[in-house]
Amino acid sequence: MAIFVNKDTLVVCQGITGTQASFHVKNSLDYGTKVVAGVTPDKGGTLHLGLPVFNTLQEAVKETKATASVMYVPASQLKAAVREAVEAELDLAVSIAADVPLRDMLEIKAMLRGCKTKLIGPNTPGIITPDEARLGIFPVDIHKKGNIGVVSRSSTLTYEAVLSINRAGLGQSTVVGLGDDILIGVDFIDVISAFNHDDETKAIVMIGQLSGPFEEAAAEWYKRQHNKKPVIAFVAGDAMPFDHNMGYAGDILTNGYVSVQDKKDALADAGMIVVNTVSDITKALVNLK
């Protein structure tokens, strides 16, 4: 089962002809991902990595029946790329773009409201369902198929969490990187909720970090759920000295400055298993068994 993507998901790549895109799409194809087409304006009709290239996403989707897109477009073109994905009524769009302007994300989030298209990212390693599908830039050789769902704000700590799960002799159902920009597509709640409904997922590992209200929102939501799976949570940034922004507006939205300990307390209070280091995830999983 897994969530969002599996071995049958037909994937199209927006911006397929770029250097980084070529490297990672080739890895994804070798991994077994069903990438069926690419989109690059003005290169329609050509072949790239053995895949047909289309001028627009609309054409690519019409020809191939793809339901998901992995986007290797630069930050400045993300808004246009997401609009195409929404218009093509895709189920999923994944953006790895870094440095996306906040105003563009504000407009993208408004665009996605009430649509069926889910956006993962931007500024994320993407999503991977081990041995089935890889959309993004995840390293190919560290994941193992299994029953633990992973969701993380940090890219690199996602890999760290995966290694901790492997060390417990377990594997992953699906791994989702949320990205750590001010505004993001899917959040902890969207992903944990999907894992709760996925038969293959038995427990969830969640990696949060300093700043932003996403962990608190997840805690508040999780507390209210009835049929829920165990969540092991880690929040990074405890050693980080207090670093205030220039104004107060951010702190007003969180009703005062929020520390990593505040986040951990909220998650523990909601019934999650909170660990102090990423490697403690291994122990916590062994204890669950």
């Binding site: 940090s154 760290e160 970090q209 990074a236 405890d238 050693a239």
Partner: peptide
């Protein structure tokens, strides 16, 4: 030297736990 904010944070957390610091 790290490649990611999350990794930077968790590395610093570990150093702190072991009584050292960045």
């Amino acid at each position: 030297i790290v490649n990611g904010d999350g990794l930077a944070l968790s590395t610093m957390d570990l150093l702190k736990e072991k009584g050292s610091g960045a």
